[in-house]
Amino acid sequence: MDVMTKPARRTAPASRLVRAELRWIFRRPRTLAVLGLLALIPVIMGIALTVADPTAASSGGPPGNDGGNLLPAAAASVLVLPIAALTMTLQMLLPLAAAMSGADALAGETSTGTLRGWLLAPVGRAKLLLVKALGVATFTLAAAAVIAATGILTALVINGDGTLSTLSGTTLSIPDAVGRVALAVGWVTLQLWAVGAIALAISAFTEHPMVVLASVLGGVIVFTVLGSLDALSWLHPFLLTEVWWSLVDVLRDPVPAADLIDGGLKAACYLAIGLSLAYARLVSKDG
């Protein structure tokens, strides 16, 4: 039979599984809706800021505005708008999107009974987790990239040419600015992988996707609250949410790398915890 390969093959190649997984993720109406919604956020921010303050489009920022805010400068800058949008969405919406992806990957598939199909094919459980993790990773990268892309486009439309000034008052070259946005997207994606890994771990323990979403949402809120309590300052270095504001550092010149690196390493720690728990649960779980 020509459709048969050597009987020696015990499991389908991982690349084929990943492709099937990605097709499934990006064919899903819910995924597309979430990406569409995220894409709208920089547009809304850009328009709102321009309407609220027409000078924002032409000048660096409105005078007399109470300082400490990234937003006034955002609409004007091809550099600032995508990063302001990423910073804002990273506080809640992007982690939720990552959680949704992690929830669908295991809990959702368990609840529809589709996970069993792959387990019976058979797909080894370690490989299954690998494929699922890559799926979540790709989705979160897409989510961050979509925000950056529409952020750049919105700023270009509002502003025409686009100013590339940093918070430190220097002006970047275009490749440099593109590099900064790419750095921001990469760093945000790494943070989202950490959230996604935790979501996958929770996802492996339940068959209700909503439980995963609720846990991640609750976790982000609790972490944020804990992070705002000065009495718990010893705990703050352990909270992933605490590092998320460091993204603004991308807009400083030269980039103060310390906090970004620290945040990246913390995300890697969460990633290790999440994936190992997810693996442990998945291999011992009844299919």
């Binding site: 390969t5 389908a12 099937a20």
Partner: peptide, 15 residues
């Protein structure tokens, strides 16, 4: 079925 078949070790991509 295509998604399920992607995991079948006995099938080639073309099959």
């Amino acid at each position: 079925l295509l998604r399920l078949a992607a995991a079948e070790p006995r099938l080639t991509a073309a099959g």
